[in-house]
């Protein structure tokens, strides 16, 4: 019965947020964005509002959170009651506070990582497809070699070499992810570089940067954006795995991945608290993919 109830409440919330967000977007959008939001589906407006919520929480974390990030407040594993609305974790830190700070770390790092891996991966991939010949061979075989090493082992290796900090974490996960993006971007671009308009642009004497940016990238956008939505979610996974091994985000900094693991024992007692950070990841994943799907539909010109 509670499951049924929560599904009903969840659906109701989804529709409510979706409708309200759509109404707000349509009412207050600047004139040049009006057509974009006119046919926005409910899923996308819901996704946008969830992402917006996460961003707000991440930016204003210190103001919203009731306690300090690493503050040990009382007994471990306290139940949900005032002043610890979501209880405490295994060290007695406030769960709600850590969830809020977790948004800052996890989402920020995931976004930076994915953005970086996409920038590097797609630029190199398109460049390889465009240049062909030995450059393509060298880059592609190098990437193949990297992909042959299991991603986790490669990141462990790199983190051990370069030391652990948030910056190296971002760079390492981005580098490992960029190999996958490179493969995708290269294969998509290979289909585009044979088009007459690329030949025309080359004959015009356009430089490499312009060819990649204006001629190829806009046409390769749809599959890349779809991949972005997916990759973004995998990064959470990588971060939490690395944190588990002690090479990721270091305690007491909060991140959702490690929070699930640290408090996992509670599950055996029928407490759903450890699922909250997992739920936060899941909700963001769904939201991002809703928005990505919407963008994909617009990019591919599909009307239905």
């Amino acid at each position: 019965m509670p499951i049924l109830l929560s599904i009903v409440v969840g659906m109701a919330l989804f529709f409510m947020i979706g409708f309200v967000a759509r109404a707000i977007l349509q009412a207050f959008a600047p004139a040049h964005l009006k057509p974009t939001f006119r046919d926005i589906p409910l899923t996308a407006s819901f996704g946008l509002s969830v992402i917006l919520l996460y961003v707000v929480v991440a930016i204003f974390a210190p103001m919203i959170a009731p306690f300090g990030e690493g503050e040990v407040l009382g007994a471990q594993f306290l139940p949900w009651a005032s002043p610890y609305y979501l209880g405490t974790d295994k060290l007695g830190r406030d769960m709600l506070t850590r969830l809020i700070y977790g948004a800052r770390n996890t989402v920020g790092i995931a976004f930076a990582t994915t953005a970086l891996s996409f920038f590097a991966g797609s630029f190199l991939g398109i460049w390889a497809a465009l240049a062909g010949g030995w450059l393509d061979q060298w880059l592609s075989r190098f990437v193949d070699a990297l992909m042959a090493i299991p991603a986790l082992i490669l990141s462990l290796l790199l983190l051990t070499i370069f030391g652990t900090s948030v910056l190296t974490l971002i760079l390492v996960i981005a580098a490992v992810d960029a190999t996958r993006v490179y493969r995708l971007a290269r294969s998509v671009a290979q289909g585009i570089v044979v088009m007459d308009y690329i030949e025309a642009a080359r004959l015009r004497g356009e430089g490499m940067w312009r060819l990649v940016r204006r001629e190829i990238l806009p046409n390769a956008m749809a599959p890349l954006v779809a991949e972005f939505g997916l990759r973004f979610c995998f990064v959470f996974l990588s971060i939490s795995v690395l944190s588990f091994l002690g090479l990721g985000i270091k305690p007491p900094t909060a991140d959702w991945g490690s929070m699930v693991r640290e408090n996992a024992t509670l599950i055996t007692f029928g407490d759903i608290t450890p699922l909250l950070p997992a739920g936060a990841i899941a909700l963001l994943t769904v939201a991002v993919n809703f928005v990505v799907d919407w963008q994909l539909h617009r990019a591919s010109g599909l009307k239905e």
Binding site: D196, Y197, A200, P218
Partner: peptide, 8 residues
Amino acid sequence: DTALNPKL
């Protein structure tokens, strides 16, 4: 069709 970049 193929000589004009469809996104420009």
